[in-house]
Design a protein around this nucleic acid. Structure first.
Lengths: 224, 224
DNA sequence: TAAAATGGATACAAAAATGATACAAAAGAG
DNA sequence: CTCTTTTGTATCATTTTTGTATCCATTTTA
Protein backbone atom coordinates (compact mmCIF):
# COMPACT_ATOMS: atom_id res chain seq x y z
CA UNK A 1 0.00 0.00 0.00
CA UNK A 2 1.78 3.03 -1.30
CA UNK A 3 0.98 6.24 0.45
CA UNK A 4 2.18 9.30 -1.36
CA UNK A 5 2.45 12.51 0.52
CA UNK A 6 0.13 15.11 -0.88
CA UNK A 7 1.37 18.64 -1.35
CA UNK A 8 -0.51 21.81 -2.16
CA UNK A 9 1.33 24.53 -4.10
CA UNK A 10 -0.18 28.00 -4.13
CA UNK A 11 1.69 30.19 -6.57
CA UNK A 12 0.39 32.71 -9.07
CA UNK A 13 3.29 32.54 -11.51
CA UNK A 14 2.30 29.65 -13.70
CA UNK A 15 5.83 28.88 -14.86
CA UNK A 16 7.11 28.47 -11.34
CA UNK A 17 4.06 26.56 -10.21
CA UNK A 18 4.48 24.09 -13.04
CA UNK A 19 8.18 23.74 -12.39
CA UNK A 20 7.56 22.92 -8.76
CA UNK A 21 4.78 20.51 -9.51
CA UNK A 22 6.81 18.62 -12.09
CA UNK A 23 9.67 18.17 -9.73
CA UNK A 24 7.51 17.12 -6.83
CA UNK A 25 5.77 14.53 -8.94
CA UNK A 26 9.09 13.27 -10.19
CA UNK A 27 10.21 12.91 -6.59
CA UNK A 28 7.18 10.81 -5.79
CA UNK A 29 4.70 13.25 -4.30
CA UNK A 30 1.15 13.98 -5.23
CA UNK A 31 0.68 17.62 -6.02
CA UNK A 32 -2.11 20.13 -6.53
CA UNK A 33 -1.68 23.70 -7.73
CA UNK A 34 -3.77 26.72 -6.87
CA UNK A 35 -3.12 30.04 -8.63
CA UNK A 36 -4.60 32.36 -6.05
CA UNK A 37 -5.09 32.59 -2.32
CA UNK A 38 -8.80 31.99 -2.65
CA UNK A 39 -8.30 28.91 -4.74
CA UNK A 40 -5.71 27.72 -2.23
CA UNK A 41 -8.15 28.08 0.64
CA UNK A 42 -10.75 26.14 -1.30
CA UNK A 43 -8.33 23.32 -1.95
CA UNK A 44 -7.37 23.22 1.70
CA UNK A 45 -10.95 22.87 2.79
CA UNK A 46 -11.70 20.21 0.22
CA UNK A 47 -8.67 17.99 0.59
CA UNK A 48 -6.22 16.66 3.09
CA UNK A 49 -2.65 17.70 2.49
CA UNK A 50 0.57 16.75 4.21
CA UNK A 51 2.38 19.92 3.29
CA UNK A 52 1.78 23.32 1.72
CA UNK A 53 4.07 25.54 -0.33
CA UNK A 54 2.84 29.12 -0.39
CA UNK A 55 4.01 32.14 -2.26
CA UNK A 56 3.57 35.14 0.02
CA UNK A 57 2.46 37.69 -2.53
CA UNK A 58 -0.76 36.24 -3.85
CA UNK A 59 -3.90 37.65 -5.41
CA UNK A 60 -6.87 37.92 -3.03
CA UNK A 61 -5.84 36.07 0.11
CA UNK A 62 -2.13 36.41 0.85
CA UNK A 63 0.31 33.84 2.09
CA UNK A 64 0.10 34.83 5.75
CA UNK A 65 -3.62 34.33 5.86
CA UNK A 66 -3.31 30.99 4.15
CA UNK A 67 -0.65 30.09 6.66
CA UNK A 68 -2.91 30.51 9.63
CA UNK A 69 -5.59 28.49 7.92
CA UNK A 70 -3.18 25.68 7.12
CA UNK A 71 -1.89 25.77 10.69
CA UNK A 72 -5.38 25.45 12.04
CA UNK A 73 -5.56 22.24 10.05
CA UNK A 74 -2.22 21.16 11.44
CA UNK A 75 -0.53 21.15 8.05
CA UNK A 76 3.10 22.29 7.81
CA UNK A 77 3.90 25.19 5.54
CA UNK A 78 6.93 26.25 3.53
CA UNK A 79 6.97 29.80 2.20
CA UNK A 80 8.32 30.47 -1.25
CA UNK A 81 9.51 34.06 -1.39
CA UNK A 82 10.96 36.26 -4.10
CA UNK A 83 14.59 37.23 -3.51
CA UNK A 84 14.06 40.79 -2.39
CA UNK A 85 11.38 40.01 0.16
CA UNK A 86 13.70 39.65 3.12
CA UNK A 87 11.36 41.52 5.34
CA UNK A 88 8.65 39.12 4.38
CA UNK A 89 11.00 36.26 5.04
CA UNK A 90 11.46 37.24 8.63
CA UNK A 91 7.80 37.96 9.01
CA UNK A 92 7.00 34.59 7.49
CA UNK A 93 9.09 32.61 9.90
CA UNK A 94 7.95 34.65 12.83
CA UNK A 95 4.37 34.13 11.83
CA UNK A 96 4.80 30.39 12.09
CA UNK A 97 5.96 28.98 8.78
CA UNK A 98 8.02 25.83 9.13
CA UNK A 99 10.59 26.74 6.51
CA UNK A 100 11.10 29.10 3.62
CA UNK A 101 12.93 29.11 0.34
CA UNK A 102 13.79 32.02 -1.91
CA UNK A 103 13.23 32.25 -5.62
CA UNK A 104 15.10 31.44 -7.72
CA UNK A 105 15.92 28.18 -5.97
CA UNK A 106 17.74 24.99 -6.69
CA UNK A 107 15.32 22.14 -7.25
CA UNK A 108 17.37 19.91 -5.02
CA UNK A 109 17.20 22.41 -2.23
CA UNK A 110 13.46 22.57 -2.56
CA UNK A 111 13.16 18.81 -2.38
CA UNK A 112 15.47 18.62 0.60
CA UNK A 113 13.41 21.15 2.49
CA UNK A 114 10.20 19.41 1.60
CA UNK A 115 11.55 16.11 2.82
CA UNK A 116 12.90 17.68 5.95
CA UNK A 117 9.67 19.33 6.95
CA UNK A 118 7.67 16.19 6.23
CA UNK A 119 10.00 14.27 8.48
CA UNK A 120 9.80 16.88 11.21
CA UNK A 121 6.06 16.61 11.15
CA UNK A 122 6.27 12.87 11.03
CA UNK A 123 4.17 12.65 7.95
CA UNK A 124 6.47 9.78 7.17
CA UNK A 125 5.66 6.64 8.97
CA UNK A 126 8.24 4.91 11.14
CA UNK A 127 9.35 7.65 13.51
CA UNK A 128 6.97 9.99 15.22
CA UNK A 129 8.10 12.99 17.19
CA UNK A 130 5.48 14.66 19.28
CA UNK A 131 5.05 16.35 22.63
CA UNK A 132 8.67 15.77 23.52
CA UNK A 133 8.49 12.08 22.71
CA UNK A 134 10.40 10.10 20.12
CA UNK A 135 8.38 7.11 19.04
CA UNK A 136 9.84 4.32 16.97
CA UNK A 137 6.73 2.54 15.80
CA UNK A 138 8.62 -0.46 14.48
CA UNK A 139 10.95 -1.05 17.40
CA UNK A 140 8.11 -0.08 19.72
CA UNK A 141 10.39 2.20 21.69
CA UNK A 142 9.52 5.57 23.12
CA UNK A 143 12.12 8.05 24.30
CA UNK A 144 11.70 11.19 26.34
CA UNK A 145 14.76 13.41 26.69
CA UNK A 146 16.84 10.53 25.39
CA UNK A 147 15.56 8.19 28.11
CA UNK A 148 13.61 5.12 27.14
CA UNK A 149 10.18 4.97 28.69
CA UNK A 150 8.98 1.63 29.95
CA UNK A 151 5.55 1.49 28.44
CA UNK A 152 3.48 -1.65 28.49
CA UNK A 153 1.95 -3.19 25.41
CA UNK A 154 -1.39 -1.48 25.77
CA UNK A 155 0.11 1.82 26.79
CA UNK A 156 2.24 1.85 23.66
CA UNK A 157 -0.67 1.11 21.37
CA UNK A 158 -2.68 3.77 23.08
CA UNK A 159 0.10 6.31 22.66
CA UNK A 160 0.40 5.40 19.01
CA UNK A 161 -3.29 5.93 18.48
CA UNK A 162 -3.05 9.35 20.04
CA UNK A 163 0.12 10.29 18.20
CA UNK A 164 -1.44 9.38 14.89
CA UNK A 165 -4.61 11.29 15.56
CA UNK A 166 -3.53 14.56 17.09
CA UNK A 167 -6.27 17.05 17.74
CA UNK A 168 -9.02 14.54 17.18
CA UNK A 169 -11.62 13.77 19.80
CA UNK A 170 -11.36 10.02 20.13
CA UNK A 171 -14.38 8.22 21.48
CA UNK A 172 -13.88 5.66 24.22
CA UNK A 173 -15.47 3.22 21.86
CA UNK A 174 -13.00 4.03 19.12
CA UNK A 175 -10.07 3.82 21.49
CA UNK A 176 -11.20 0.54 22.90
CA UNK A 177 -11.78 -1.00 19.54
CA UNK A 178 -8.35 0.07 18.32
CA UNK A 179 -6.25 -0.81 21.31
CA UNK A 180 -8.16 -3.79 22.65
CA UNK A 181 -9.31 -5.00 19.29
CA UNK A 182 -12.68 -6.10 20.55
CA UNK A 183 -16.09 -4.66 21.05
CA UNK A 184 -16.67 -1.96 23.63
CA UNK A 185 -19.16 -2.69 26.39
CA UNK A 186 -20.52 0.67 27.43
CA UNK A 187 -19.58 1.27 31.01
CA UNK A 188 -16.03 0.12 31.70
CA UNK A 189 -13.40 2.46 33.09
CA UNK A 190 -10.57 0.54 31.49
CA UNK A 191 -9.77 3.11 28.85
CA UNK A 192 -9.71 5.88 31.45
CA UNK A 193 -7.32 4.00 33.65
CA UNK A 194 -4.90 3.34 30.83
CA UNK A 195 -5.04 6.94 29.74
CA UNK A 196 -4.16 7.98 33.27
CA UNK A 197 -1.23 5.61 33.40
CA UNK A 198 0.05 6.75 30.04
CA UNK A 199 -0.27 10.38 31.02
CA UNK A 200 1.78 9.80 34.13
CA UNK A 201 4.51 7.69 32.56
CA UNK A 202 4.98 9.83 29.48
CA UNK A 203 4.40 13.18 31.13
CA UNK A 204 1.39 13.87 28.97
CA UNK A 205 -0.81 15.24 31.73
CA UNK A 206 -1.46 18.35 29.72
CA UNK A 207 -1.38 16.87 26.24
CA UNK A 208 -4.03 14.23 26.64
CA UNK A 209 -7.16 16.03 27.59
CA UNK A 210 -10.48 14.55 28.52
CA UNK A 211 -13.35 15.36 26.23
CA UNK A 212 -16.32 15.28 28.51
CA UNK A 213 -18.80 12.55 27.66
CA UNK A 214 -16.76 11.53 24.61
CA UNK A 215 -13.33 10.29 25.45
CA UNK A 216 -9.93 11.90 25.00
CA UNK A 217 -8.08 14.23 22.70
CA UNK A 218 -4.32 14.42 22.18
CA UNK A 219 -3.03 17.94 21.73
CA UNK A 220 0.75 17.88 21.18
CA UNK A 221 2.42 20.41 23.44
CA UNK A 222 4.54 21.83 20.66
CA UNK A 223 1.38 23.07 19.03
CA UNK A 224 -1.05 24.44 21.54
CA UNK B 1 -25.70 13.02 17.91
CA UNK B 2 -24.15 14.55 14.85
CA UNK B 3 -20.51 13.64 14.99
CA UNK B 4 -18.74 11.12 12.86
CA UNK B 5 -20.34 9.63 9.83
CA UNK B 6 -22.02 6.44 10.83
CA UNK B 7 -21.91 3.47 8.53
CA UNK B 8 -23.86 0.24 8.65
CA UNK B 9 -22.19 -2.88 7.26
CA UNK B 10 -24.40 -5.86 6.55
CA UNK B 11 -22.26 -8.84 5.72
CA UNK B 12 -22.58 -12.46 6.81
CA UNK B 13 -18.92 -13.38 6.46
CA UNK B 14 -17.52 -12.35 9.80
CA UNK B 15 -13.94 -12.04 8.62
CA UNK B 16 -14.87 -9.59 5.90
CA UNK B 17 -17.26 -7.69 8.12
CA UNK B 18 -14.55 -7.24 10.72
CA UNK B 19 -11.98 -6.21 8.15
CA UNK B 20 -14.31 -3.56 6.78
CA UNK B 21 -15.25 -2.30 10.20
CA UNK B 22 -11.65 -2.02 11.37
CA UNK B 23 -10.67 -0.03 8.34
CA UNK B 24 -13.66 2.25 8.53
CA UNK B 25 -12.99 3.01 12.17
CA UNK B 26 -9.36 3.64 11.36
CA UNK B 27 -10.48 6.10 8.70
CA UNK B 28 -12.56 7.94 11.24
CA UNK B 29 -16.04 6.56 10.80
CA UNK B 30 -18.38 5.03 13.29
CA UNK B 31 -19.42 1.59 12.25
CA UNK B 32 -22.01 -1.04 13.11
CA UNK B 33 -22.13 -4.56 11.77
CA UNK B 34 -25.15 -6.74 11.11
CA UNK B 35 -24.67 -10.35 10.09
CA UNK B 36 -27.98 -10.94 8.38
CA UNK B 37 -30.58 -9.07 6.41
CA UNK B 38 -33.00 -9.15 9.31
CA UNK B 39 -30.46 -7.77 11.72
CA UNK B 40 -29.58 -5.12 9.15
CA UNK B 41 -33.19 -4.03 8.89
CA UNK B 42 -33.41 -3.81 12.67
CA UNK B 43 -30.35 -1.62 12.86
CA UNK B 44 -31.70 0.62 10.14
CA UNK B 45 -34.91 1.16 12.03
CA UNK B 46 -33.17 1.76 15.34
CA UNK B 47 -30.38 4.10 14.26
CA UNK B 48 -29.55 6.85 11.86
CA UNK B 49 -26.84 6.01 9.37
CA UNK B 50 -25.07 8.11 6.79
CA UNK B 51 -24.17 5.20 4.57
CA UNK B 52 -24.79 1.49 4.20
CA UNK B 53 -22.57 -1.25 2.82
CA UNK B 54 -24.58 -4.32 1.88
CA UNK B 55 -23.55 -7.71 0.74
CA UNK B 56 -26.11 -8.87 -1.81
CA UNK B 57 -26.33 -12.52 -0.87
CA UNK B 58 -27.55 -12.45 2.71
CA UNK B 59 -29.46 -14.82 4.96
CA UNK B 60 -33.15 -14.00 5.35
CA UNK B 61 -33.63 -10.60 3.75
CA UNK B 62 -31.34 -10.05 0.75
CA UNK B 63 -29.41 -6.98 -0.28
CA UNK B 64 -31.98 -5.73 -2.78
CA UNK B 65 -34.72 -5.65 -0.21
CA UNK B 66 -32.47 -3.88 2.27
CA UNK B 67 -31.58 -1.43 -0.46
CA UNK B 68 -35.14 -0.30 -0.96
CA UNK B 69 -35.56 0.07 2.77
CA UNK B 70 -32.41 2.17 3.08
CA UNK B 71 -33.45 4.27 0.12
CA UNK B 72 -36.78 4.98 1.74
CA UNK B 73 -34.76 6.43 4.63
CA UNK B 74 -32.65 8.45 2.20
CA UNK B 75 -29.45 6.64 3.08
CA UNK B 76 -26.92 5.98 0.31
CA UNK B 77 -25.93 2.40 -0.32
CA UNK B 78 -22.82 0.69 -1.63
CA UNK B 79 -23.12 -2.95 -2.63
CA UNK B 80 -20.32 -5.33 -1.80
CA UNK B 81 -20.47 -8.20 -4.27
CA UNK B 82 -18.54 -11.42 -4.70
CA UNK B 83 -16.47 -11.50 -7.86
CA UNK B 84 -18.62 -13.76 -9.96
CA UNK B 85 -21.87 -11.93 -9.39
CA UNK B 86 -21.65 -9.71 -12.45
CA UNK B 87 -25.27 -10.16 -13.21
CA UNK B 88 -26.02 -9.04 -9.71
CA UNK B 89 -23.70 -6.10 -10.19
CA UNK B 90 -25.72 -4.76 -13.05
CA UNK B 91 -28.93 -5.51 -11.26
CA UNK B 92 -27.57 -3.76 -8.18
CA UNK B 93 -26.75 -0.54 -9.91
CA UNK B 94 -29.95 -0.59 -11.89
CA UNK B 95 -31.92 -1.13 -8.75
CA UNK B 96 -30.60 2.08 -7.32
CA UNK B 97 -27.39 1.43 -5.39
CA UNK B 98 -25.04 4.39 -5.37
CA UNK B 99 -21.89 2.39 -5.99
CA UNK B 100 -20.61 -1.15 -5.80
CA UNK B 101 -17.33 -2.88 -5.08
CA UNK B 102 -16.29 -6.45 -5.76
CA UNK B 103 -14.66 -8.83 -3.32
CA UNK B 104 -11.77 -9.21 -2.90
CA UNK B 105 -11.13 -5.47 -2.81
CA UNK B 106 -8.31 -3.13 -1.94
CA UNK B 107 -8.98 -1.36 1.33
CA UNK B 108 -7.98 1.92 -0.23
CA UNK B 109 -10.49 1.47 -2.97
CA UNK B 110 -13.20 0.77 -0.45
CA UNK B 111 -12.34 3.90 1.52
CA UNK B 112 -12.21 5.99 -1.63
CA UNK B 113 -15.66 4.83 -2.67
CA UNK B 114 -17.06 5.41 0.77
CA UNK B 115 -15.65 8.90 0.87
CA UNK B 116 -16.90 9.62 -2.60
CA UNK B 117 -20.46 8.55 -1.93
CA UNK B 118 -20.58 10.43 1.36
CA UNK B 119 -19.40 13.52 -0.42
CA UNK B 120 -21.95 13.07 -3.18
CA UNK B 121 -24.66 12.89 -0.55
CA UNK B 122 -23.32 15.83 1.39
CA UNK B 123 -22.80 13.77 4.46
CA UNK B 124 -19.30 15.10 4.97
CA UNK B 125 -18.52 18.43 6.39
CA UNK B 126 -15.66 18.13 8.79
CA UNK B 127 -14.87 21.83 8.88
CA UNK B 128 -17.47 24.54 9.12
CA UNK B 129 -16.64 28.23 9.09
CA UNK B 130 -19.42 30.54 10.12
CA UNK B 131 -19.95 33.75 12.05
CA UNK B 132 -16.28 34.05 12.85
CA UNK B 133 -16.11 30.51 14.18
CA UNK B 134 -14.01 27.62 12.94
CA UNK B 135 -15.70 24.37 13.77
CA UNK B 136 -13.90 21.07 13.48
CA UNK B 137 -16.68 18.54 13.76
CA UNK B 138 -14.33 15.59 14.16
CA UNK B 139 -12.00 17.04 16.75
CA UNK B 140 -15.03 18.68 18.33
CA UNK B 141 -13.09 21.91 18.60
CA UNK B 142 -14.40 25.40 17.98
CA UNK B 143 -12.07 28.33 17.49
CA UNK B 144 -12.80 32.01 17.53
CA UNK B 145 -9.98 34.31 16.44
CA UNK B 146 -7.64 31.35 16.81
CA UNK B 147 -8.67 30.78 20.42
CA UNK B 148 -10.28 27.49 21.39
CA UNK B 149 -13.67 27.88 22.97
CA UNK B 150 -14.53 25.64 25.88
CA UNK B 151 -17.93 24.37 24.88
CA UNK B 152 -19.66 21.55 26.67
CA UNK B 153 -21.06 18.50 24.96
CA UNK B 154 -24.55 19.87 24.58
CA UNK B 155 -23.34 23.33 23.63
CA UNK B 156 -21.22 21.88 20.88
CA UNK B 157 -24.04 19.78 19.47
CA UNK B 158 -26.33 22.77 19.63
CA UNK B 159 -23.85 24.93 17.76
CA UNK B 160 -23.47 22.23 15.15
CA UNK B 161 -27.20 22.11 14.64
CA UNK B 162 -27.32 25.87 14.13
CA UNK B 163 -24.27 25.91 11.89
CA UNK B 164 -25.79 23.24 9.70
CA UNK B 165 -29.11 25.01 9.48
CA UNK B 166 -28.33 28.68 8.97
CA UNK B 167 -31.26 30.99 8.39
CA UNK B 168 -33.77 28.37 9.47
CA UNK B 169 -36.24 28.93 12.27
CA UNK B 170 -35.69 25.92 14.47
CA UNK B 171 -38.51 24.88 16.75
CA UNK B 172 -37.66 24.17 20.36
CA UNK B 173 -39.05 20.76 19.75
CA UNK B 174 -36.70 20.17 16.82
CA UNK B 175 -33.74 21.45 18.74
CA UNK B 176 -34.52 19.33 21.74
CA UNK B 177 -34.98 16.20 19.74
CA UNK B 178 -31.70 16.69 17.89
CA UNK B 179 -29.48 17.72 20.73
CA UNK B 180 -31.06 15.76 23.55
CA UNK B 181 -32.04 12.86 21.40
CA UNK B 182 -35.27 12.32 23.26
CA UNK B 183 -38.82 13.55 23.20
CA UNK B 184 -39.65 17.14 24.01
CA UNK B 185 -41.99 17.77 26.92
CA UNK B 186 -43.66 21.08 26.15
CA UNK B 187 -42.76 23.55 28.82
CA UNK B 188 -39.12 23.23 29.80
CA UNK B 189 -36.71 26.14 29.55
CA UNK B 190 -33.76 23.89 28.99
CA UNK B 191 -33.26 24.75 25.35
CA UNK B 192 -33.42 28.47 26.11
CA UNK B 193 -30.82 28.18 28.80
CA UNK B 194 -28.42 26.33 26.57
CA UNK B 195 -28.93 28.81 23.77
CA UNK B 196 -28.06 31.59 26.19
CA UNK B 197 -24.94 29.86 27.34
CA UNK B 198 -23.85 29.18 23.79
CA UNK B 199 -24.50 32.76 22.75
CA UNK B 200 -22.36 34.06 25.56
CA UNK B 201 -19.46 31.65 25.15
CA UNK B 202 -19.27 31.88 21.38
CA UNK B 203 -20.15 35.56 21.06
CA UNK B 204 -23.25 34.77 19.06
CA UNK B 205 -25.53 37.24 20.83
CA UNK B 206 -26.49 38.75 17.52
CA UNK B 207 -26.32 35.64 15.36
CA UNK B 208 -28.70 33.45 17.29
CA UNK B 209 -31.96 35.27 17.41
CA UNK B 210 -35.12 34.27 19.20
CA UNK B 211 -38.12 33.56 17.03
CA UNK B 212 -41.08 34.48 19.12
CA UNK B 213 -43.18 31.50 20.14
CA UNK B 214 -41.18 29.18 17.88
CA UNK B 215 -37.61 28.82 18.95
CA UNK B 216 -34.39 30.21 17.49
CA UNK B 217 -32.81 31.14 14.22
CA UNK B 218 -29.10 31.25 13.42
CA UNK B 219 -28.12 34.09 11.11
CA UNK B 220 -24.38 33.94 10.44
CA UNK B 221 -22.61 37.27 10.41
CA UNK B 222 -20.83 37.41 7.08
CA UNK B 223 -17.20 38.05 7.65
CA UNK B 224 -13.88 36.22 7.58
C1' DT C 1 -51.31 51.74 26.93
C1' DA C 2 -51.69 47.91 29.99
C1' DA C 3 -52.05 43.02 30.71
C1' DA C 4 -50.33 38.79 29.23
C1' DA C 5 -47.02 36.07 27.25
C1' DT C 6 -42.41 35.09 26.26
C1' DG C 7 -37.49 35.21 26.45
C1' DG C 8 -33.11 36.63 29.21
C1' DA C 9 -30.26 36.46 33.47
C1' DT C 10 -28.82 34.50 37.69
C1' DA C 11 -28.30 31.32 41.39
C1' DC C 12 -28.19 26.97 43.01
C1' DA C 13 -28.73 21.98 43.36
C1' DA C 14 -28.81 17.49 41.19
C1' DA C 15 -26.62 14.46 38.17
C1' DA C 16 -23.01 12.75 35.55
C1' DA C 17 -18.27 12.10 34.29
C1' DT C 18 -13.46 11.89 35.25
C1' DG C 19 -9.32 11.47 38.40
C1' DA C 20 -7.10 8.91 42.05
C1' DT C 21 -6.18 5.04 44.76
C1' DA C 22 -6.21 0.44 46.30
C1' DC C 23 -6.37 -4.07 45.32
C1' DA C 24 -7.38 -8.53 42.79
C1' DA C 25 -6.87 -11.34 38.73
C1' DA C 26 -4.23 -12.76 34.78
C1' DA C 27 -0.15 -13.26 32.23
C1' DG C 28 4.76 -13.90 31.91
C1' DA C 29 9.58 -14.63 33.57
C1' DG C 30 12.92 -17.12 36.03
C1' DC D 1 6.07 -23.13 41.26
C1' DT D 2 6.99 -18.49 42.89
C1' DC D 3 7.73 -13.82 41.96
C1' DT D 4 7.07 -9.90 39.08
C1' DT D 5 4.65 -7.29 35.79
C1' DT D 6 0.64 -6.10 33.53
C1' DT D 7 -4.16 -5.47 33.28
C1' DG D 8 -8.76 -4.78 34.98
C1' DT D 9 -12.44 -3.81 38.73
C1' DA D 10 -14.19 -1.38 42.57
C1' DT D 11 -14.52 2.60 45.22
C1' DC D 12 -14.26 7.29 46.70
C1' DA D 13 -13.16 12.21 45.78
C1' DT D 14 -13.34 15.98 42.73
C1' DT D 15 -14.77 18.45 38.85
C1' DT D 16 -17.87 19.57 35.20
C1' DT D 17 -22.16 19.68 33.22
C1' DT D 18 -26.92 20.10 33.20
C1' DG D 19 -31.56 21.39 34.68
C1' DT D 20 -34.99 23.87 37.71
C1' DA D 21 -36.60 27.75 39.95
C1' DT D 22 -36.96 32.47 40.19
C1' DC D 23 -37.02 37.11 39.02
C1' DC D 24 -36.55 40.68 35.52
C1' DA D 25 -36.86 42.71 30.81
C1' DT D 26 -38.96 42.76 26.52
C1' DT D 27 -42.38 41.90 23.06
C1' DT D 28 -47.08 40.90 21.71
C1' DT D 29 -51.76 41.65 21.72
C1' DA D 30 -56.10 43.29 23.07
Amino acid sequence: MIIMNKILVVEDEKAIATLIKMNLIKAGYQCDIAYSGNEGADRLSENTYDLCLFDIMLPEINGYELLSYAKSLDIPVIFVTAKGETLDKVKGLKSGADDYITKPFEVLELLARVENVLKRFNKTDRFIKTSGLDIDTVARIVKKDGEILKLTYKEFDLLLLFARNPGTALYRETIYEHVWDSEYMGDSRTVDLHVQRLRKKAGLEKSIEAVYKIGYRFVPEDRI
